[in-house]
């Protein structure tokens, strides 16, 4: 299902944070590109700049310099309003701590997307596809971590975005549940044709990725393509 067309391109992206005492370079002249429908893993130790990269791509933060092209459009130059639109229509986020709205039920959390995009996927259908049909009426606090993360993925998918950006999606889960979640994400790429980008520090996942981007101290160390990626279920954790 891979689409050879390159849809994401980082070009000399730098992001600096002014802490008041000194300037911290979270990303330093980063360039790479990703093809449509790929399952991409971004690897690196803590503080390497993985989340910053994901935030920039997700339109949640501004670059200090450089360009980020998504589908041929440079999102680095967009206004806040346009960025909001971009996030609504192109990006689905999956967070480490799920970030579900605690006062909304599983189904309501997903149905929330109806308020944002014009053509969302049916909330019940998505919930069913992540195997939580019977938990529709439960509040996040009543669900296990794995279940909450599956709701979170369902919410991201329900918007029918171009890409899913996942920041340490298994960071708060045990390895077995984590594997199930990752398998689900891989399927989103394989079966639904979404570009899925997963930030993790778990080296083992590299075997399952179409493309692996290694990052350290805010710089790209290596980008490798994997011609024969394994299924997540086949990876040795």
């Amino acid at each position: 299902m891979k689409n050879a067309r390159e849809i994401i391109c980082f070009s000399h992206v730098t992001r600096e944070y002014d802490t008041g005492l000194h300037v911290l370079k979270a990303l330093d002249d980063v360039s790479f590109s990703i093809g449509g429908g790929e399952f991409v893993v971004i690897l690196g130790p803590s503080g390497a700049g993985k989340s910053t990269l994901l935030n920039l791509l997700g339109g949640m933060d501004h670059v200090t310099s450089g360009e980020i092209y998504v589908d041929g459009q440079n999102i680095a130059g967009l206004s806040d309003d346009r960025l909001t639109e971009y996030r609504a229509n192109h990006v689905g986020f999956v967070f480490q701590f799920y970030n579900l709205i605690p006062t909304l039920t599983a189904l309501e959390n997903i149905a929330l997307t109806k308020k944002i995009v014009r053509t969302p996927v049916d909330a019940r259908e998505v919930l069913e596809s992540v195997g939580l049909k019977d938990h529709a009426g439960q509040f996040p606090a009543q669900l296990s971590g794995g279940e909450q993360q599956r709701v979170s993925i369902a919410r991201a998918v329900a918007k029918n975005p171009t890409m899913l950006l996942c920041d340490e999606p298994t960071g708060a889960l045990d390895s077995e549940t984590g594997a199930a979640v990752l398998e689900m994400l891989q399927n989103m790429s394989r079966e639904r044709g979404k570009t899925v980008i997963v930030v993790t520090h778990n080296e083992a996942l590299a075997e399952a990725a179409d493309r692996v981007i290694r990052i350290k101290n805010g710089r790209i160390r290596e980008v490798t393509e994997n011609p024969e990626p394994k299924a997540v279920s086949g990876v040795n954790w």
Binding site: D81, R87, V91, N99, L100, I101, P102, I116, V117, R155
Partner: peptide, 16 residues
């Protein structure tokens, strides 16, 4: 705070 961030990340407009 986190919920607001989530809503923003989801693409909710500021004024909503």
């Amino acid at each position: 705070r986190i919920q607001i961030g989530t809503l923003k990340a989801l693409g909710f407009k500021q004024n909503v």
